[in-house]
């Protein structure tokens, strides 16, 4: 079983990123010594302008890219030292849903189910439930190449959740989703954290962050500008809209 990190309050720290630095081509510093953590039961929004380092952080968290220095722990597993167990704890939605388009939706979910060792009865009920929620039941038998962008995004969401991972890392998960599906995903995120799990997602939509997140992390040029609740942020900047606060912070 995992060596679960305990935070100050006693709840489990599901994601911990410590002093991460990443430089591309030895010149572009994408992340500069950033640290933060996400506890079980928390939905944390990751906000920042384009090119601020959001996707790089997500990719480091999921083991896709290697940081120059620093440490990442997922559900108690170090992503470098114990990558397989760490990855097994993650449900990840990448920024591009165009993957294995020659497979049918159901075949893709079967592949993900087998990779994450989801038992037959569990995957059947979970796929049925999620496909109904996202209105994808009728499309499961069709090749994904015939899906619209939104449908591909929905199948990625189902694939990320089919194995009930304790940590969700979602890169712009709402892009392409219709209002009903976006609502369902937000509901699922809330239900997931109620069970003591963690959700960490990036978004450009401040309203989503405002309504959904327990905490937000604002990043710009590889530096974390703010890490806390939106309430605290608004209290510090009275009479200003969230949009204005965000613009002031990121345009400094």
């Amino acid at each position: 079983m995992s060596d679960v990190i305990r935070s100050d309050e006693g709840s489990e720290t599901m994601i911990k990123i410590e002093n991460i630095t990443k430089t591309y081509n030895k010149t572009v510093k994408a992340l500069d010594n950033i640290s933060f953590s996400v506890k079980g039961g928390e939905i944390v929004g990751f906000i920042g302008p384009n090119g601020s380092g959001k996707t790089t952080t997500m990719k480091i968290l999921t083991g896709i890219i290697k940081p120059d220095m620093g440490k990442v722990t997922i559900n108690g597993f170090n992503i470098r030292e114990d990558p397989i167990e760490a990855k097994r704890s993650i449900g990840y939605i990448a920024d591009n849903p165009d993957i294995f388009l020659r497979l049918k939706g159901l075949e893709f979910l079967e592949l993900i189910g087998d990779i994450y060792k989801v038992p037959t009865d569990v995957r059947r009920s979970r796929t049925k439930d999620l496909a109904e929620k996202f209105g994808l039941t009728d499309a499961l038998g069709s090749p994904m190449i015939s899906y619209s962008h939104g449908m591909r995004q929905k199948i990625m969401v189902i694939a990320a959740l089919i194995h009930k991972p304790p940590v969700w890392i979602l890169d712009e998960p709402m892009i392409g989703l219709d209002p009903k599906s976006a609502f369902e995903l937000k509901q699922l995120m809330r239900e997931h954290t109620k069970e003591g799990n963690a959700v960490f997602f990036s978004t450009h939509v401040l309203e989503v962050a405002e309504k959904l997140c327990d905490r937000v992390i604002i990043i710009k040029n590889g530096h974390i500008l703010y890490d806390g609740t939106l309430e605290e942020l608004e209290n510090q900047n009275k009479n200003k809209s969230l949009e204005n606060i965000f613009l002031e912070l990121t345009e400094k």
Binding site: L101, K104, L106, L109, E110, L111, G113, D114, I115, K117, V118, P119, T120, R123, R124, S125, T127, K128, A131, T137, D138, A139, L140, G141, S142, P143, I145, S146
Partner: peptide, 25 residues
Amino acid sequence: QSMSHKGKSADMTEKMHQISCSASY
């Protein structure tokens, strides 16, 4: 890019069954 295919609307999840990761890959 490709011809559109319409799958059956019947419950396809019943066809799902677990195999080894390598076999599935």
